Amino acid sequence: MSAANDEALLPTEGTAEQIASASAYRLAHEDAELLSSDDLRPLRLQLEFLKPERALRAAGIQSTIVVFGGARILSLEVAAAQLDAVHARDREEPGRPNSHKEMIAARRAVKYSRYYLEAQRFASLVSGRFQHEGRREFVVVTGGGPGIMEAANRGAYQVGARSVGLNVTLPHEQQPNPYITPELAFRFHYFSLRKMHFLLRAKALVAFPGGFGTLDELFEVLTLVQTGKVPRVPVILVGSAFWKCLIDFDFLCEEGLVSPGDLKLFSYAESAEDIVRQLEAFYGGRVPDASFPEWTP
């Protein structure tokens, strides 16, 4: 074979650069395509567990209180402004279509805004009492979004305390509310890992009125407590009229679908002070043991 043919078989000048830029040559942990593949799902699950866990340990957070509630519940300021806007449109355009429905919705938002206020007040009370430098107990944890979640994070923020937000990727992206402690604002892809982090340090669950997400989270916790997968913790439903209208727990008991003792797994409260009193009664006025519960997700 001639020298010219030998030279033709040599790599071209650009070949080394092409190899270095190829996906196969990337370090595995830098290969986004690899990490997002179906085969790597177990690793992504582990990462979603480890990333928040490391941050929470570094922040010294030992026990938490989980606050659930509707993302659509507004503060009184926002709800009142919406009601004023409906009144203004009615004055400008009497008899306009959908006015009655808008008025009902606006008045309902004002009515439900009291839960925003109580969530905010509760978070301020419990955060101001139990969070101290070097030991952070009963740290408020929310889903990180708007509504009741925002109210609870806001209450902690107002007293200079830390709070956690566990956001999740959704088809319509949910932005984190601005009151979460920045280094404790996490975003999840997997609902299952998010739910695990809600409960790993939880010493109480406080559920305000909400929709499907709130109900899903509430009943998962009740099921885990009922079946002994997590230790008994206070589960407090805020707004007895709302909850008793929404769910007929007595009917479930009467039909033999739950035991009478299961109805003692939760209680009702109407105000921030009422929630705090129930927590004090349950724990005897002491901060609970911060050791991790042994449970199976």
Rank of each mutant, 00 (worst) to 15 (best):
D250L: 12
G95H: 04
L125M: 14
I19H: 07
G145E: 15
G284I: 12
G128R: 04
L27P: 10
G165M: 04
Y112W: 11
R57L: 01
V233L: 09
D90Q: 12
A185D: 08
I61G: 13
Q18S: 15
I247F: 01
E273K: 13
G210N: 13
E13W: 13
Y179I: 08
A55I: 06
V221I: 13
L279P: 01
V67N: 00
G134C: 15
G144W: 08
S75C: 05
V66N: 00
R286S: 13
H172K: 12
Y115C: 03
G160V: 12
F68V: 01
A32L: 07
V238S: 01
E273Y: 12
A105Y: 02
E270K: 09
G256C: 02
P182I: 09
F138Y: 02
K203G: 07
T169L: 12
K229Q: 04
G128A: 04
S127R: 03
E133N: 12
W295P: 00
G144I: 11
A109Y: 01
G165N: 04
T169Y: 12
V140T: 07
D90F: 09
A20L: 15
R286F: 12
L205P: 00
C245N: 15
V233Y: 05
D262S: 03
A55C: 07
T64H: 07
Q278G: 01
T296C: 05
A59P: 02
K101E: 15
Y116W: 15
K195N: 08
F188A: 07
R41T: 09
L184V: 12
E183F: 02
I236N: 00
H189V: 10
V206K: 00
D31H: 10
E254H: 14
F191T: 00
M1E: 08
A81Q: 13
L125I: 08
A85P: 07
A185L: 05
A16E: 08
L279D: 01
R121W: 06
F251E: 15
P11K: 12
A4D: 14
R232P: 03
L170P: 01
S113N: 10
L218D: 04
K203Y: 03
L193Y: 05
Y116P: 09
S291R: 13
V141A: 04
E150C: 08
G211Q: 12
Q18P: 09
S192P: 03
L50N: 11
L170Y: 04
A105F: 06
F292A: 11
L252Q: 04
P234F: 00
A151H: 10
E33W: 11
V110N: 09
L184P: 11
L74Q: 10
I275N: 00
L170C: 04
A281S: 05
K101H: 14
R107A: 09
P234L: 01
A85T: 03
Y283N: 14
K51I: 06
S291E: 11
N167W: 14
Q131P: 06
G143V: 11
D38S: 14
D274M: 08
S240T: 14
P52C: 15
L56C: 10
G14M: 11
R54A: 10
Y25L: 15
S63E: 03
L50R: 13
A156K: 03
E220A: 14
E137Y: 08
G210Q: 11
E17T: 13
P234M: 02
P97Y: 05
P231W: 08
L9C: 09
L47V: 15
E48Y: 01
E220I: 12
R96H: 10
Y157N: 04
P234C: 08
W243Y: 10
Q175T: 10
